[in-house]
Simulated scan of single mutants.
Amino acid sequence: MRLNFFKPREKRHTIAFYNIENLFDVYDDEITRDYDMLPSSEKRWSIKRYNNKLRKIGYVISNIGLKEVKRHPAIVGIAEVENDAVLKDLINSKHLEEHNYSFVHYNSPDERGIDVALLYDENVFKVAFSKTFTVDLLDDDGSIDYTRDILLVSGLFEGLELHVIVNHWPSRRTGDIETEQKRMKASKKVTEIISFLKDKNPEAKIVIMGDFNDDPNSNSLKALELSHGLYNPMRTLLSHDRGTTSHNQNWNLFDQFLMTHNFFERKKNTLRFVKANIFDEAYLKEYEGKYKGSPYRTYVGKRYNGGYSDHFPVYMVVSKR
């Protein structure tokens, strides 16, 4: 008699990152410069527009990786949220309320009050530890340049140790070359965080995600990659007609993942990397005009556009055997 032995089926999950373009409430925060996103501002931000944004962003998040994994993402790094209140509204919005999401968020010193955060499905990921790390920057005149903190969240993902580092590095607003040193400092800070984790456990499994405001081949990303022998699966995805954000009709791939090489281990009971991609479905794109194909954003300058974000999300699929 012939016996059939079946290998246990692997379980797959999605880990995502999304810069959601200024998710602000409609109330004035006297501590931060949020006056652009108030009902009285030129942008005329309103409850109706806020709720529309929540619904749209929730719909996107619920669909990231759905074709591959058949369920919502287990973890979603988020950039450009104002506070805890908007995150609570987001996870309780129409398309996310049934998914048991919780979040980790700390207020950062960023002058505009935009922070990073981590959404996670409590059925999959159990948070054990979280901490923020400040990137100390100076402007040319010697004054402090307040930017987003880097967020570290550690826990058990399907019972296995996982560390996630969420980033939103300094922008290129005043010029790519002029601001490069600021992103190099952020890169160095992430290197220090990885060293901190590896000092405790040399085999620590780490995912670094974020809007780095640099492409995979930029000096800051190459330095980070080399510092701990990391793998960047996004390198092959940037092309002349594809990226995560577009400026002057040129694509950039600022939104990326890097990971430790132990995501390629073949042993049992471990998390393994499967694939990474840009989530750039047609409904997330401008469908006509000069900017056809670029992200369908909420605002274009001061003009309300009614879209989703000026960035496409990115995602990676991991498996546990």
Rank of each mutant, 00 (worst) to 15 (best):
G65L: 12
L66T: 02
L66F: 15
K70F: 11
P73H: 05
A74E: 03
I75Q: 05
I75A: 06
V76F: 11
I78H: 06
A79R: 04
V86L: 08
L87P: 15
L87S: 08
H95C: 11
L96V: 09
L96E: 06
E97I: 15
Y101S: 03
S102I: 00
N107E: 05
S108C: 07
S108R: 04
S108T: 10
P109E: 00
D110I: 07
D110Q: 02
R112T: 13
G113Y: 00
V116M: 01
L118W: 07
E122D: 08
F125Q: 04
K126L: 11
K131P: 14
T132F: 00
V135P: 06
D136K: 14
L137M: 04
L137D: 04
L138H: 07
L138M: 14
L138I: 06
D140C: 02
T147A: 02
T147R: 15
D149W: 00
L156P: 08
L160S: 14
H163I: 13
H163E: 03
V164S: 10
I165M: 10
H168R: 04
P170Y: 00
S171A: 13
R173G: 07
R173T: 12
T174Y: 12
T174W: 07
T179V: 01
E180C: 15
E180G: 07
Q181E: 02
Q181C: 08
K185Y: 03
A186R: 01
K188L: 09
K189H: 04
I194P: 09
I194G: 10
L197T: 12
K198L: 09
K198I: 02
D199L: 13
P202R: 13
